[in-house]
């Protein structure tokens, strides 16, 4: 089942420019500097996990990409388009809503608190986006919803109301809702942090499935180190708004070079 419009299967080493590029990105909240001149790139099809202590800027990176926040300085490029500026008559001007909507088309996000719409059934939660923003027909959107609910193991709940679902089920619906938009980039923001421990595995299994069967580029903020090791091509360790260390999951989890990474992983693995 094709979940993404991306054709072919470009791995992390694929030719061409990066799909996502952060260029000296600065993000401040008042006096609090969350990202300090951050530079990094993500290739199409790559699955990158962001780890690090809370407040280190991981979630902010996802929120900037989803255009829920704006940068204070620097540029974020998605497929060659800047998220903060656009070109008009050969000049760079601040991005307008139309530009943002065009860039956003490629990006989907799953939130820590699911954020399903309580005024809609599961079916509507999944179909409203494709119908109203992609112009997909109702029949096609319904078919997508059914296929995706099958993927996340909740086909029987298609006409249920979000309040009738457990947290884990709600999060699986939220994943289906994001995938129904066929994004090229999927942002996962601590998607299991709000769940009871016994519900975490079900959600992670779904995401493992998505990772194995599609070529969607994934940026994942998580404290689930086992999951990070299984699905990601690359792990970025953040500390105080900078990348403290980056490498393959084997290297980061097996032989971390930085002391900061070692202490962080030790703390997470002890409590986890």
């Amino acid at each position: 089942m094709p979940l993404s419009d991306t054709t072919g299967a470009p791995g992390p080493e694929a030719a061409g420019g990066p799909l996502i590029r952060f260029e000296k990105v600065v993000k401040r909240y008042g006096d609090n500097v969350v990202l300090r001149e951050l530079d990094f790139e993500v290739a199409a099809g790559e699955r990158v996990t962001l780890i690090g202590p809370s407040g280190s800027g991981k979630t902010t990176i996802l929120r900037l990409l989803m255009t829920l926040e704006t940068v204070n300085d620097g540029v974020i490029w998605v497929n060659g388009d800047s998220l903060s500026h656009m070109e008009r008559n050969g000049k760079l001007v601040p991005a307008n809503e139309a530009h943002l909507r065009r860039v956003r088309k490629k990006i989907g996000m799953v939130f820590q608190q699911f954020n399903l719409f309580p005024n809609m059934s599961v079916r509507k939660n999944i179909t409203e986006g494709p119908v109203h923003t992609l112009g997909v027909s109702k029949e096609e959107a319904n078919q997508r919803a059914e296929d995706l609910l099958e993927l996340v193991g909740l086909k029987a709940k298609i006409d249920a109301h979000p309040t009738q679902l457990s947290g884990g089920q709600q999060q699986r619906v939220a994943i289906a809702r994001a995938l129904a938009m066929r994004p090229e980039i999927l942002l996962l923001d601590e998607v299991t942090s709000a769940l009871d421990p016994e519900l975490v595995a079900g959600v992670l299994d779904v995401l493992r499935d998505v990772a194995q069967t599609t070529d969607i580029t994934m940026l994942c903020v998580t404290h689930e180190m086992g999951f990070a090791r299984d699905v990601s091509h690359r792990v970025l360790m953040f500390d105080a708004g900078r990348i403290a260390e980056e490498g393959t999951p084997e290297q980061i989890f097996g032989d971390p070079r930085e002391e900061r990474t070692r202490t962080f992983l030790k703390a997470v693995l002890e409590t986890g």
């Binding site: 989803m66 956003r104 996000m109 939130f111 954020n115 719409f117 409203e128 986006g129 923003t133």
Partner: peptide, 25 residues
């Protein structure tokens, strides 16, 4: 605010966000 953010993630226009999600709630 999380509801608004979810509509942005689904790339809804302001009018659709209001009509489909915010005003009904």
């Amino acid at each position: 605010k999380a509801q608004t953010e979810a509509t942005i993630a689904l790339n809804m226009t302001w009018a659709r966000r209001m009509r489909l999600v915010i005003l009904p709630q």
